[in-house]
Nucleic acid binder design. Sequence first.
DNA 1: TGAAAAACCGAAAACGTATTCGGTTTCCGT
DNA 2: ACGGAAACCGAATACGTTTTCGGTTTTTCA
Lengths: 356, 356
Amino acid sequence: MSSRNRFRPEGKCGASPLAVTIKELSAACGLSVSTVSKALNDYPDVSSETRALVRATADQLGYRPSALARGLKIGRTFNLGVLFDTEDGGLTHNYFSPVLEAFKSEAERRGYDIAFITHHLGSSPMTYLEHCLYRNVDGVCIVCSKFEEPEVVELVSGPLPVVTIDHVFHGHSCVESENRQGMTELTRYILSMGHTRIAYIEGNSASVTTVRLTSFLRTMQEAGIGVPESYLVQSIYHNPAAARAATEKLLALPERPTCIIMSDDYAALGGMEAIRAHGLRIPEDISVAGYDGVPLLQMCRPRLTTVAQDTAAIGEAAARKLVHLIEQPRTTFQETISVPSRLIPGETVGPAPVGA
Amino acid sequence: MSSRNRFRPEGKCGASPLAVTIKELSAACGLSVSTVSKALNDYPDVSSETRALVRATADQLGYRPSALARGLKIGRTFNLGVLFDTEDGGLTHNYFSPVLEAFKSEAERRGYDIAFITHHLGSSPMTYLEHCLYRNVDGVCIVCSKFEEPEVVELVSGPLPVVTIDHVFHGHSCVESENRQGMTELTRYILSMGHTRIAYIEGNSASVTTVRLTSFLRTMQEAGIGVPESYLVQSIYHNPAAARAATEKLLALPERPTCIIMSDDYAALGGMEAIRAHGLRIPEDISVAGYDGVPLLQMCRPRLTTVAQDTAAIGEAAARKLVHLIEQPRTTFQETISVPSRLIPGETVGPAPVGA
DNA sequence: TGAAAAACCGAAAACGTATTCGGTTTCCGT
DNA sequence: ACGGAAACCGAATACGTTTTCGGTTTTTCA
């Protein structure tokens, strides 16, 4: 019953030392451990000859300082925590996974590895913050999560540098698309195709959701076109089933919209399914727009009309900002970084039907 | 110039101790550090009363042993390395990312975090194995990589437990789909639709590639239908552009195939693009099959005919196997685990054209 | 009641590294 | 040649754990 035994691997345990330590290196150099350490860390009080000697033999022996020992000593690990908590599919999320990929690349380029943050370790539960402290990450990126959860709030207001994506917490750094610009362009484009009955399916709560909806409504207002309450439907991001249900509501209206702006591309698939099920054609009978610009869908027919978010730039900016926050906390300020998005006029938004 | 300074964060450094240590816990309990440690680790020589006391105050103070210190001492980190190295898109890979997601979930369920393995740390290059030793991972899963690379071979033949996915190294554990069964079913299905001129676009080298091709050829042979050399084209997995080029070759043949089996779903998109560019209809003029069964494509029209690989089962099995290899090296043997795959008859394979 | 055995606890060493501080040596200017 | 300053090196300590081992108390049994 002693759970301790489960922790001890039985195999080649202390058999052969896997990695070469600084002690062996110092022995090989005929120097003390401290001098070797100083040589490797560019201390001034070591002659250039011995520094060279140490460097050379270190290379030769393939010495790497143990990340564990180093981290323990200096209090940081060169690990960035990533909170990526989505119930649907996790890493397969087709908008957030490219963001994460870019984040990871940039982090690695800057010498950081990434570590996923969960709220359990094996069977024992722990909060996100606990996990971060347990693993000693140097900072956290919150990529995709329920931002209202108390655990997330605890993490954000904790002691570690934090960068969020697509949701701004007051006084903290955030990276997001220029949602206002994106939604405005999309709406104008749809208007330019002659649509007046435009419905809008909203994603679940996040600060970007509000920005997009506001931009849509204002653009409509500027065009002098009203949007009835019934044209605004609540739904969930990245959830085709929910979008399908929302779309059904819209199709059941006495005066059906001629165009629907979906919460995102993936949701749009569900919406389009509902439309097809009603025997309607896209875009001849009804137009559909998405949001995100997932590349895979741009290779399918009909090509979705959407707003492409620059996932590469978002992830990269997040990593860069987080590293700055970690390495120069004094001179780095909190900010919200907006990266431009781009309208992709695809095949799913056509001219408004004439009879409508 | 001293690069050392870059490593020291200037901020709240030793200001407030972020996490509570065992020393503070022992003080709070009025016990020695050693006793506390033993109480937490279920040592027999500590009374149940003190054990209870320690446990209680530990919970109360929110104590977690530092992963760093613990790892340093016991020689393992409860981290699983993941080698996920694909030039195209990394984490966004639409077949491997669900595998990774399942792997991650199962690993976390068993108390392991995952760590990505690269061949550089910041600017300084290092081999995969070096990275593993540097971070002290307990084992490695090689998910997607050029298996011929010397670095990968070095890693596989290194001291750590290894599980590969979709490529078997002799004497090591591997998880893959039942490719033989999958390809056989697909081929039979295509044959049942009346096709005789079936072309095959091959992926780049891996052991599964061979198995699939062999299964295809044997099934064709069993049906008594020959496959000309020109119907077998070399291409690259997960690369629409390469598939497009390969498809062009096939379409240029004097006797064009009536069905093409693509190396995978994503590649199929490229192939279908080529076909459409030639003004041909799918599946009326020419049929197309993919492999993998990526869920997103099953929501698009036309629904791709393909073989679904059970990514969840694959990832889970890999994690389980790797953890077994780590925790019970004596009693766990190396093996290749095959998980069943499933034919999805979609809309892209139709009856063979009559005139053909 | 006494001695052996069991039960329980703490001091100390170790894991691999970074850093402070005191101690040699070398160098320079006079 | 001499004093002092620079230049260079190593012993020691600490980071937060685990684990061995010796020591004290309590229990048990003849």
